[in-house]
Amino acid sequence: MIRIGTSGWRYPEWRDGFYRGVPQRRWLSHLATQVATIEINSSFYRLQPPSNYQKWSAETPPDFVFAVKGPKLITHIKRLRHIEDPLKTFLDSLALGPKQGPLIWQLPPSLRFDRATLADFLAALPPSRHAIEPRHESFRTDTYFDLLRAHNVAHVVSDAPTFPCIEAVTADFAYIRLHGHDELYISSYDDKQLDEWAQKIHDWNRDTYVYFDNTMKGAAPDNAKGLARRLGSPLTSHT
């Protein structure tokens, strides 16, 4: 199973390109006809009511999947410590039902790897698919990889010019975020780069979620479709 999509969908920059002629209220449903999965980012910035998740679920095909980003209250403010109450509040808010995919935990660039802190955090997570995206070089260590493997948590392989790309597969699924190789959130992936990512995914030979976050100039949807074609993956979840 390979699902390829975009990180978010609410981008005014796409209005005159990908969303040309599409009313804003239909942006999500329109994108969901083009890709097989979308990463929900708004949950990172503020707690979303269950009604929002239910609405988004209703606007997408039956076998569509959302990844959901964990709140910055947990990752950036509390920095993975003393997170029991906000974690429960976040988990209780989720209302995607069978469309719930992995939960992604994006760590701040200033957060260094600390085995004890991460071990406690992983132990607090409920059974589900979880992915950790570190943005500090100190995570490039076997101690970190082994800890994730023990919990079957995926390390997020991130491609960006401003934080390290650490390639490691640590779970029975892989998770990739492509933020723009040359310019963060901007640059498009050319044919050679898409070929290289397709080969890596093929070689990993496991369930994989890929999200293009190069959204600021609208490259993400086309890149997602280009990578899906290379892998023979359905462009949409209901194809």
Rank of each mutant, 00 (worst) to 15 (best):
D159T: 07
T162K: 13
D172M: 02
F173P: 00
F163H: 09
S138C: 10
H179T: 02
N152C: 01
D191R: 14
T141M: 08
R177N: 02
R135P: 01
Y185L: 09
A171H: 00
D172P: 05
N152I: 03
A168T: 01
R140Y: 14
P134G: 02
H179M: 02
R177H: 04
S138I: 07
Y144I: 07
H136S: 05
Y144F: 10
D191C: 12
T141N: 14
D190Q: 10
S138A: 07
D159Q: 09
L184I: 14
V169Q: 14
R149E: 11
D182Y: 15
E133Q: 07
R149V: 05
H136Y: 08
H136G: 03
D182C: 13
R177G: 03
T143V: 13
A160W: 09
V156N: 04
Y189C: 11
C165F: 10
L148H: 01
S187G: 07
E137P: 09
I186K: 15
R135W: 09
F173T: 07
A154P: 03
Y189F: 10
C165H: 13
H155D: 10
Y175A: 06
E183A: 13
V169S: 12
A154Q: 05
F139M: 04
R140E: 14
H179Q: 00
A171P: 00
G180Y: 01
P134S: 09
L148E: 04
V153S: 05
S158G: 11
P164A: 02
I176N: 04
S138P: 08
N152A: 05
D146K: 03
T141D: 14
Y189W: 09
F139S: 04
E167D: 05
A168Y: 01
C165Y: 11
I176T: 04
T143L: 12
C165M: 14
S187M: 11
F163D: 03
F173R: 04
F139K: 08
H136W: 10
R140T: 11
R135A: 01
